[in-house]
Structure formats: structure tokens, C-alpha cells
Design a protein around this nucleic acid. Structure first.
Lengths: 355, 355
DNA sequence: CTGTTAGCGCATTCAG
DNA sequence: CTGAATGCGCTAACAG
């Protein structure tokens, strides 16, 4: 006895029977994988609407074909934190549009830093054709291990290197070096850095770049810090606020700009951080860029600021699309290539020669 | 012959066989739905890891149980557009956390305004236990019809009324009326409104509130406009920018503040719109609130502005959680109740008596 | 172009 | 506490 509200749901076989054709013919009508006489097709379709049949049961079809049309997108540290950053949103946007062409959807799987194991349990219970790691550091290894055991292809956008996962990224070191070089050429010698917290532990009081580098496990962060070191050496004062957003930038600025002598420029690892630094600086009466130059990373729109942020522009949507195509290749069994995308240094109005 | 890279994947039955137990026993080990001797369980688990078995195949298990642990989240007009608004993100955040407790994930299904039918095709191909509509207006009816035919429970957060869908929302009319009343009590008599485009068609040049009301099909928008009309009558100048963000607010302000006499206050349908209005006003040398009062809607953080926006604060995360619980009830076959959540008018520094 | 035949991997009765 | 049997709804060969 069925437990649905209506009587028994219509199935492909009941439709076929009603239309007086065999099940396989009816199946072909829906999959379009074989030739079916127009008259037959219409008869089947007519019976289908009559019986309220809405097409092949996805679960049954996945079981049979081994594909479910779903790609897991695994984020780190909660959804809200991840999507607060417009850059992450543009990544997902590109991903979605690429996957959409193959009728593949994305399943959001936020990984909480408090229950890292939970994500594995969740993942184990859901059918996915592939997975994409978004902003996941090495702490996501359990998830990757699980995926590998299941033979599910994994693509990471930035961060999280592993032999099993494919990567789409930019040359973070070169990109950041370009930004640093720009400042150096303007004449800046006293700079400070706003980075990401290594392993989730914020570093409020300034330490040296080398010090933070030693503690940072995240691949992308490391590369970028190296890019700065290439230009300004290992002793640059560096902080890493607890949050990856405007508030974080403000608190970072507060710590970096309280001592003497003040830096003439601040290099940040993200546009939101940069905007926070700018907001705090302006609040304190410092003019940007005249009294303080600031650089960002990502190239998100900042409509609430009058100026144009000097920043490394990453092709967010494009990166997502490339990742999506890579995912589709892997799902189809084709061999995928890791991809390194170009970035571009946009020189805006947040940098100028020091006073 | 299997087409996976390795030899044949391990299945429950192969694990059972290796452990010398029956399939059903092995199944119980994983589902925990029946008593299994500790020794037996361990033997099974040991063989499982030995064979690289990662747990019951989700597709097979969904076919059998009729549940797949996935809820579709349907957004309107592209993902990026939807998630650019922090309020939408907080909604999803709450939703995720509520669903997570039932080990249920969310599948993102952005509905494009250019191919509204596409979403139905996509949905038809994926297994879902329920669906949540986010910011979807009446144009989403095809999707709802499909869901109804499939007997899939649907919950909408704001917008999109239909006999089949359950709703979680706030009393938009009363909330907006409270904001309008606040301005009226301050002494404002010349106000203007920034709303949402009716049916996606922007209204750049000001029309009357009544006019826009007549064209608006979106439930939430209508209610809010009615709340304004309750206080200021039907003749308030109203625009509806093409984009629901800061840029949209700027362009709206440009049109509303170009004529004479200037309004002394602007009521917007969203915080981002409000921030855009403020940005444009300040850019033009108007001081907020002294020269122009501005109100928002939602209560998102606006860290880049020094002031505090006067706005209707909606419980975003909470709303998402409530929707999530409703979804779970419906999936479980329990009868769910529509919910109306309270809002709160936050009086900030963006409003004051007119000059 | 259409029908027949076999499972996909598992959860669940129901005996023992 | 354990095992044997049954089908969830569908797709993919293959034979007509």
C-alpha cells in the first residue's frame, strides 16, 4: 500500500500500458535516445498527462545510469561567511551556468569548523556526480578522502592541493607580486599586510610576514604572502583578522595604524578587507590614497566607495565556468587538466606615491 | 562490465558476504534501525573498510525509501543577482542550518528570466524531497505546477502565493506602514518611494504609487506599497530601478532628486537600495538625514556606512530556520502551518525631521 | 521502429 | 538477533 496522498503514483510502465506500448518505447520517448514514431510518442505523452505522470523518477534513473546530475559545492565555515563575499558568489555563479548546460545542479554543503566530520556523513548520504571545493583549506581532507574512496571527481577552486583533486586557480604569487611591485615602484617602503587567519586563529597584533607564513597552511594564502615577500622582504608587519570582510579590515587597520611610524601603504588579501581598511582610515582622518595607499585582491564591485580600488582582478565568473567545464569533463570520464587563469592588476585611485 | 576506474565497486552485499552475514544484517549496521550484535557490527565494518565500501549507495537507497535528503531552493533571475543581497544569504543560511539537523541538503536551482521553462526541465530530472521558493514571483507557476504534480511539498519565503505552497513571511504591509508612520510623525509630507520593478520592467521616471501598485504582481511588493499608501496616500512619486542593489538605489535617487520640489524623505524597499540612495545623495552634497531622510527594509549590516540605517529589521536567519522546519514537517508528512514572523522598526541615524 | 529481458543496490517484510 | 526473498522504477542491450 502506497503512502503517498493520492492513489499509486503513475510510473513509466503504467503509462506504457495505458498507451499500449512497451516500457522501453515509453522510456525512449522521454530520453530521446532512440527513434520513436511520432504517433506513438504522442499517444504516450497523452496518456502521461492523463495519468499525471511527470517523467521518469530521478532516483530510479540515477540508480540505473549511475548519474544523478548533482555536483556538491563544499564551502568552509558556514554558508553565510562564504557568501558574504561577492567574489565567492561570482564563482558559484559561473559554476552554475557551466553546469547548467549539462543539466547539472549544485548541492550546497557548508562545512562547519566546529563539526568537520559532519560534512562527511552528510556527503555519504547524498548522491553526487562530482564535488567542488570552495575556499576549503587542508582541514577538508576527510571530505576529500571520502570522495576519493567513492571515486567521485573533485575540483578545487583555489586552496586545498591534493593528488586526487583537480585545481582551477590563478598564479597567486605572481598576482600579489604585481600589486606589491606597483607599490614599490610608487616609492613605498614601509608597508603592512592584512592576511587571512592561519588555521582559523586570528592574529590581531602585528607579526612579521615570515612569522605568519610559517603558520599558514592555506595554499592560496601562502602563495600570496610569498608574492609580497618577493618584493618587500620577510619583515613586513602583518595581521590576520578573524573575519574575512569589511569588519575584519577595520579591526586590522586599527591594529596596523595605531603604532609609529605609520605604514605608507597596506596590502590586503581581499577587496572587502581593503574596503574595511579604507573605511577605518578615512574615519580616522587619513586620506586615501594621499596619506595611505591600499590594495585589494579579487576585483569585486564596491559601489559604496567613491574611488576605484587598486586591486588584483580575478575573473570570478570565468573561473567558476572553467571549473564547471572541468567538472563536466571529469564526470564524462574525460581526463581534465588543471587550469591556471590570468589575473590583471587594476590601478585605481586607492594608491599613489607616499607623502 | 563496469566502467569505473577500479574493478567493481563494493556493495552492501559484497561486504555482507565478506563478513559472512546476510545483506539485511549489514544494512542494519548502517541504518542503525535494528539491533545488531557488537561483534557482528565490527566484523561488517572491518570488511567494509577493507573493501573500500563507503556506505549504502545513496541513489539505491533513495529509490527504496522514497527520500533523497535534498531540498531544492529555487531563486529568481540568476544566482548572483539573488545572492548579491546579504538578506537572501541569511535566509539560506537559516534554511541550511535547520535542514542540516535532518541531514538534508539544499540544491540550488536558479531560474533565469529568459528561460523560465528550463527550470522545470531541470527540476524534473532531479530527485528532491521538497522545494523552497526564494524571491520567486508569480512567473514561477510552471515550477509550482510541476512540483504539485509530483506531490512535492513547497514552501515559499515571501512572495508567490498559491494554494499548494506554504508560506513563511512577515506582515509586509504593517511593517512598511510602521516605517511610513515614523516618517510622517517626524513631519515629513513630501516623500518618494523606491520599489521593485513590476514584472522585471524597470520604471525609471517617477509614476504615482497607485500606478505602480496597479502594475505590481509580486505579493510582497504590493503589500509594502499598500503600507506606504496607508500613510501617505496614492500619489507618492515612485520609481522602480532595474537592479535590486546599491547601483539601483543610486539611479533611483538620481531620478527622484532631479526635479523640484525635492522630497524630504525617501522610502525604499530594501537596505541596499537605501544605501544607494544615500550614496548618491551624499555625492550630490545632500546630508543624510538632515537634508534627506532615508528608510530601508531588511536590516542587513552596512559596515561601509558610518551611520545607522533606519529600517524594518526582518529576522533573516530565523525566517530561514522556520521555513526549514516547516519543510521538514511537510516531508515527514506532518501538516505544516503557514507562519507570519514579527518585524521591528529600527530607528537609526538616516531619518530626522525635515528642515 | 518496437518488445523482451535483466539487473542497478538496497530496505524491508517475515520466518527462524 | 539473523537470513531469504521481494521489488522500488527505470535503462540498456539485444532480438525481432
Amino acid at each position: 500500500m502506497p503512502r503517498t496522498r493520492q492513489a499509486t503514483r503513475a510510473t513509466l510502465s503504467s503509462v506504457a500500458q495505458a498507451a499500449g506500448v512497451s516500457i522501453s518505447t515509453a522510456s525512449l520517448v522521454y530520453s530521446g535516445k532512440g527513434p520513436v514514431a511520432t504517433a506513438t510518442r504522442e499517444r504516450v505523452l497523452a496518456q502521461a498527462t492523463l495519468l499525471g505522470y511527470t517523467g521518469p523518477d530521478p532516483a530510479a534513473s540515477s540508480l540505473r545510469t549511475g548519474r544523478c546530475g548533482v555536483v556538491a559545492v563544499i564551502t568552509w565555515d558556514g554558508l553565510a561567511a562564504a557568501f558574504r563575499d561577492p567574489y565567492a558568489v561570482s564563482l558559484v555563479d559561473g559554476l552554475v551556468s557551466a553546469l547548467d548546460e549539462a543539466s547539472t545542479g549544485i548541492l550546497l554543503l557548508p562545512q562547519s569548523r566546529h563539526q568537520p566530520g559532519h560534512a562527511v556523513a552528510r556527503l555519504a548520504a547524498t548522491a553526487v556526480d562530482a564535488a567542488v571545493l570552495l575556499g576549503c583549506g587542508p582541514e577538508s581532507s576527510p571530505v576529500v578522502d571520502h570522495l576519493q574512496a567513492r571515486q567521485v571527481p573533485v575540483v578545487t577552486i583555489g586552496t586545498m592541493a591534493s593528488s586526487w583533486v583537480h585545481r582551477v586557480d590563478v598564479d597567486n604569487r605572481a598576482a600579489m607580486r604585481a600589486a606589491a611591485t606597483h607599490l614599490h615602484q610608487l616609492g613605498h617602503r614601509r608597508v603592512a599586510v592584512v592576511s587571512l587567519p592561519p588555521g582559523g586563529a586570528p592574529v590581531a597584533e602585528p607579526v612579521t610576514l615570515a612569522d605568519l607564513l610559517a603558520r599558514s597552511t592555506d595554499l592560496e594564502t601562502r602563495e600570496r604572502l610569498l608574492g609580497i615577500r618577493d618584493v618587500f622582504g620577510p619583515d613586513v608587519p602583518t595581521v590576520a583578522p578573524h573575519k574575512w570582510d569589511i569588519e575584519g579590515g577595520k579591526s586590522a587597520a586599527e591594529h596596523l595604524l595605531s603604532g609609529q611610524p605609520l605604514p605608507t601603504a597596506i596590502i590586503t588579501q581581499g577587496d572587502l578587507l581593503a574596503m574595511g581598511v579604507i573605511a577605518w582610515a578615512e574615519h580616522r582622518g587619513l586620506r586615501v590614497p594621499h596619506d595611505l595607499s591600499v590594495t585589494g585582491f579579487d576585483g569585486i564591485p564596491t559601489p559604496w566607495w567613491e574611488g576605484v580600488l587598486t586591486t588584483v582582478v580575478q575573473p570570478g565568473v570565468h573561473k567558476g565556468e572553467v571549473a564547471g567545464r572541468l567538472v563536466l569533463d571529469l564526470i564524462a570520464g574525460r581526463t581534465g587538466q588543471d587550469v591556471v587563469l590570468p589575473t590583471q592588476l587594476r590601478i585605481g585611485t586607492s594608491t599613489c606615491p607616499p607623502r
